[in-house]
């Protein structure tokens, strides 16, 4: 019999391996320290920084792919731009950056995005991709205490054949990194617990500083980071620059760490 390259394993074992691996992780992460909704650049950075401090982090992402808009700079062109000092974040990851004009850096989108995802995975972040955020879990005094999720494909099927109840995951904190949609904060708004101000017209120079400044806990148990900050606080939109995404994610992680410490 001719020698084979790969080891001999049957279909059933492959299935068992997938199911076991997935369920073990899912079982464990039904309770997390922090759930981040949105695996764009701010969510990835926030998750990575928390995981580096041994915080149990799960990132929920509605798409199959991670990285959000970080693969592409803008207008389907795959170069991402960052204003100083944000390029240092990419340089730390070993992503080459070129200074286009003083203070504005350009990097290869796929290179930057894949390295960022890898760094989050290396730090210990776990992901629930193809998973749609459906609602929030509220506890005493309306503290946010987790998220309700469902499979993303459910939303694409007719209701009469997909009456599938969602399930819930608990966490001490939730971080909304869902971009301009600010999906998590919107659920609080739907219940009259918060009022978002909506993002304004593009003004890159002003918006980036403010997005970082306003990254904060907007409601007990809920932190906003990245572009959702501009929607919540009525800041100008940023356009295809990513510096504030990275620094806002980092700040959100620091805020979360402080909160977790205070919780004991």
């Amino acid at each position: 019999m001719a020698e084979k390259i790969f080891s001999q394993v049957g279909e059933a074992e492959v299935t068992k391996a997938i199911v076991k691996g997935f369920l073990e992780q899912f079982y464990s992460y039904a309770n997390s320290d922090v759930i981040i909704v949105g695996a764009g650049p701010s969510g990835l950075i926030a998750g990575r920084e928390l995981a580096k401090q041994s915080v149990k982090v799960l990132i929920v992402e509605r798409n199959n792919y991670l990285g959000g808009g970080f693969w592409i700079g803008g207008y389907l062109m795959n170069k991402v731009t960052l204003r100083s000092p944000a390029e240092k974040e990419l340089q730390k990851l070993g992503v080459p950056c070129e200074e286009h004009v003083k203070g504005l850096w350009v990097a290869d989108g796929p290179h930057a995005c894949s390295k960022l995802i890898a760094s989050a995975c290396d730090a210990g972040v776990k992901f629930a991709n193809m998973t749609m955020f459906d609602d929030i879990v509220l506890r005493e005094e309306n503290r946010v205490a987790g998220v309700v999720i469902n499979w993303t494909p459910i939303s694409a099927l007719p209701r009469e054949i997909t009456c599938v109840d969602p399930i819930a995951l608990e966490s001490k904190l939730v971080i909304d990194c869902t971009g301009h949609d600010a999906c998590v904060v919107k659920k609080l708004q739907d219940r009259g617990l918060i009022k978002m101000k909506g993002f304004g017209a593009m003004w890159v120079e002003m918006s980036e500083d403010l997005v970082v400044e306003y990254t904060s806990e907007v409601h007990p148990g809920l932190i906003v980071a990245g572009m959702s900050v501009s929607t919540v606080f009525g800041l100008p939109r940023m356009g295809p620059t990513f510096g504030a995404m990275l620094l806002s994610g980092e700040k959100a992680a620091h805020i979360a760490l402080e909160k977790l410490k205070a919780m004991g």
């Binding site: 101000k197 909506g198 304004g200 017209a201 400044e213 306003y214 904060s216 907007v218 606080f233 009525g234």
Partner: peptide
């Protein structure tokens, strides 16, 4: 009195603590 959108004369009525802190 922060402007939320340059094409609307809506001022900032519902304040978050972080806005005041800033």
């Amino acid at each position: 009195i922060r402007i939320l959108s340059i094409d609307k004369k809506d001022l900032n009525t519902h304040l978050f603590p972080v806005e005041i802190e800033y």
